[in-house]
């Protein structure tokens, strides 16, 4: 019983983190058809700026409770600046190119971002654990979990719900669906497609940075963390169906539970459980679980 509960909480906790770390990727793919490897770079930027800001704030005597605000703030700033620079500075010259070529473009951007991060923050690791322990722990069946874990779960739900509402219940969301459906026609209808692309990319970058920013208090932020997230978030969105927000959520849950199950029941399988699940899902549902009609992404 204790194991079953632990698997559920651990699975949910990991899934929430996975969802936050990959939702930006699926958004950008859904709208722009770009499989954005630079996503890892945004994640790292978010993590660095959040850890750096929290450290600065807390060490100069700021109350920890306010440091929570720095997390979304850091993600917003880092994601918006980097996203704008990348989209306006590089990507817009590449639109219309082939999907695979765009993967290479974003890989090149990722390499540049990696070193840029190193130039800004150096190679020493940053730790900013204060927010993670501010609210202490809760015991669930004799296993303590940090309250912060549950906050991450709530944030993941909120982000998912907000994206769903914006896309489906607002005018902007409906226009965006039109753009996804047919770029040329929507342009002819007077929709500013370029603006939609820019905004989508920046929002995607901010979400990527948020994934990093929110995990920063639980980890040690140092060079290389961006590369780790790339393939993991690919797996999540491929399982769920690329370009689907709901799919990303489902994919995150499946991967999260697969990992929690293997850790608690058969630890040696942990290393490749994710890829086994991914291969199994694709073998049965070639386009992922949530892939609806081809053009109806998101």
């Amino acid at each position: 019983m204790q194991t079953a509960v632990a698997i559920s909480v651990d699975g949910l906790g990991f899934a929430a983190w996975l969802f936050l770390s990959s939702v930006g990727l699926t958004l950008i793919y859904g709208v722009m058809r770009i499989l954005n490897i630079a996503h890892g770079g945004f994640y790292a930027l978010g993590a660095y700026s959040s850890a750096w800001a929290i450290g600065l704030f807390v060490n100069s005597g700021g109350a920890v409770v306010y440091s929570f605000l720095l997390i979304p703030l850091a993600a917003l700033l880092a994601g918006a600046i980097a996203g704008l620079l990348v989209e306006r500075g590089i990507l817009r010259y590449m639109y219309g190119r082939d999907e695979v070529l765009m993967v290479l473009v974003t890989y090149a951007i990722f390499l540049i971002l990696e070193d840029a991060t190193k130039l800004i923050w150096g190679t020493e690791s940053y730790v900013a654990w204060q927010p993670a322990f501010h609210f202490g722990t809760i015991n669930v069946m004799d296993i303590p979990y940090t309250v912060y874990k549950f906050i991450i779960m709530a944030v993941a739900l909120a982000v998912g719900a907000a994206l769903f509402l914006v896309l489906n219940k607002t005018r902007v969301g409906k226009l965006l669906l039109v753009v996804i459906e047919d770029r040329e026609i929507s342009g002819a209808l007077g929709i500013n497609v370029t603006l939609f692309f820019t905004v989508t990319f920046v929002v995607g970058a901010i979400l990527g940075a948020l994934g990093g920013a929110i995990s920063a208090p639980e980890i040690s932020v140092l060079p290389g963390i961006g590369a780790e997230i790339i393939v993991l978030s690919f797996a999540v969105i491929v399982i769920g169906g690329m370009g689907s927000i709901g799919g990303a959520m489902l994919g995150a849950l499946i991967v999260g539970f697969a990992r929690a199950l293997s850790v608690h029941l058969y630890p040696p399988a942990e290393l490749f459980s994710i890829y086994l699940v991914m291969a199994a899902v694709l073998a049965v549902k070639p386009y992922g679980l949530f892939a609806l009609a081809e053009s109806r992404k998101i």
Partner: peptide, 20 residues
């Protein structure tokens, strides 16, 4: 030695831009 990835990435981008 410390920022060679940046050079590699930039050359890649330029190649794609000018030699699609």
């Amino acid at each position: 030695p410390n920022t060679w990835q940046m050079i590699l990435g930039s050359v890649m981008l330029l190649t794609i831009l000018y030699l699609p």
